[in-house]
Design a protein around this nucleic acid. Structure first.
Length: 402
RNA sequence: GCGCCGAUCGCAUAGUGGCAAUUGCAGCGGGCUGUAAACUCGCCGACCUAUGGUCUACGGGGGUUCGAGUCCCUCUCGGCGCA
């Protein structure tokens, strides 16, 4: 008996995209779906009821963060993450693989999920790119990763087995294999080595998972890496796709223009009938690129983090509510938006809350942004069902880029 | 009236002979994509033939000095003490 089942309902003709239905032990997810990020078992600034009411279907927490605080044993003892955080719907956990990157290669650098470094500089280890060593909180070796806690400096060692063990304790419906999210500024030689290691770790993750009872109630997704390199991406999709995972994650840190290519290469190879999760992607344009290239699930901190920092989505593009022009703008953030915030508050009031550093600013802004992104993916889904994806896409881009 | 102390870019501060001048707040703008993030990075005297130049500036006026926010005199305002 499989913990999850996935059904494709409709495809975008001539493309990889599709709308589907994913059943989990804690409820169904209609895909494509945006997965709300709740790293430390909370969606920052919102109650689970607020998260549910804005239409979010599923929440993703983080293994590394919950292992450090409060500790996975506590979560196991209370009966799993759903009970721990009072979220009754489906849940996922990331393996800590992203922290290998964010606390390791990317630590102290201007590197993120999508880098500003132009693609042409990523061909080889370019001398133009600053590769100077700075103290890191994660160091990788063939068997695992040593993390130095960002909270208290203590050292912790993660192996694939350890990550899965923690994820079993946390108890989310869908969990991820332990991987290395490779830095895009590494040489192709390193990327190849890293990929071999991620593949080995994927197998270990899967074997360990299958050896436990938890595999009957928790689904495991394997993660495809390979950076911006077509041969590595295809090799990875072939290898990871051949293993008996319940679904797949697509990972990596990209130059903006590389992301959609990588996703396409990979999804042409991965088994069509299994769900694909594009890890850490979630700006509006990128969601379209992900969907049309065959991804079903997306998680991203962008809507929640941007919200806390004053960046609000509208159908005409993003707005920085801290700009002085909004202090006396008595219209809603987005006049066509049906969220709680837009129905009850003005830009001027939001601007006031942000300037006064009031907590409600984060809550109202997060409600709006999540509603926007969750709703956008929902609308994308509907457009696929209605066979109007391309029209919907075009209309959105024209308005959003304005 | 006498004595002491103080006055620096919106506010608060640093500065004891080489200074367009520290830091914090406020202000203005940018960034944020599997959350080290209610974070972070710029700018913040004016003007220009702008990776440089000119001018005006540390309460007012005068002086010493190659050079003064910094030293001296004086005035104004404020605080404290003594009458």
């Amino acid at each position: 008996m499989k913990p999850i089942s996935f059904k494709i309902e409709k495809k975008i003709s001539g493309q990889l995209g599709r709308a589907g239905h994913l059943d989990t032990p804690h409820g169904a997810i209609k895909t494509p779906a945006f997965v709300t990020v709740g790293t430390k078992a909370t969606v920052k600034s919102l109650t689970p009821e607020q998260v549910r009411d804005l239409g979010a279907q599923v929440v993703l927490a983080n293994t590394y963060h919950l292992y450090l605080q409060p500790g996975d044993k506590i979560i196991k003892d209370v009966g799993g993450i759903q009970k721990w955080m009072n979220w009754s719907g489906p849940t996922m956990t990331d393996s800590g693989g992203f922290q290998v990157f964010s606390l390791g290669a990317a630590y102290g650098k201007e590197l993120g999920k999508l880098t500003k470094i132009p693609a042409e500089l990523l061909l080889e280890n370019s001398p133009d790119i600053d590769t100077e060593e700075k103290p890191k909180l994660a160091t990788i070796d063939p068997n695992g990763v040593t993390f130095r806690s960002h909270i208290d400096g203590s050292a912790h060692y993660f192996t694939p087995e350890k990550s899965i063990e923690i994820q079993h304790n946390i108890g989310a419906d869908i969990i991820f294999a332990f991987d290395e999210c490779t830095s895009p500024i590494e040489s192709i030689h390193y990327q190849g080595q890293s990929l071999d290691r991620t593949h080995r770790w994927a197998k270990q993750s899967l074997e360990y998972h299958k050896s436990k009872e938890n595999s009957k109630t928790q689904a495991l997704f394997g993660i495809v890496q390979g950076g911006r390199h077509e041969n590595l991406r295809k090799e990875s999709a072939g290898f990871i796709g051949s293993l008996d995972f319940d679904g797949f994650g697509i990972g990596g840190s990209f130059a903006k223009e590389d992301m959609k290519n990588a996703v396409k290469w990979v999804n042409e190879i991965l088994p069509e009938e299994k769900p694909k999760h594009l890890l850490g992607i979630g700006e509006p344009e990128d969601l379209f690129y992900g969907v049309e290239n065959g991804c079903d699930l997306f998680d991203c901190v962008a809507p929640t983090r941007n919200a806390r920092n004053g960046g609000l989505y509208t159908k005409y593009g993003k707005v920085n509510i801290l700009n002085s022009k909004y202090t006396n703008d008595f219209t809603p953030i987005d006049s066509e938006c049906n969220c709680y915030t837009c129905k009850n508050y003005t830009r001027a009031y939001l601007a006031h809350l942000f300037r006064a550093k009031e907590m409600l600013a984060a809550t109202l802004a997060t409600i709006h942004n999540l509603h926007f992104i969750v709703g956008l993916v929902e609308n994308i889904r509907q457009s696929i069902i209605d066979e109007k994806f391309n029209e919907f896409r075009e209309k959105f881009f024209i308005s959003y880029k304005n």
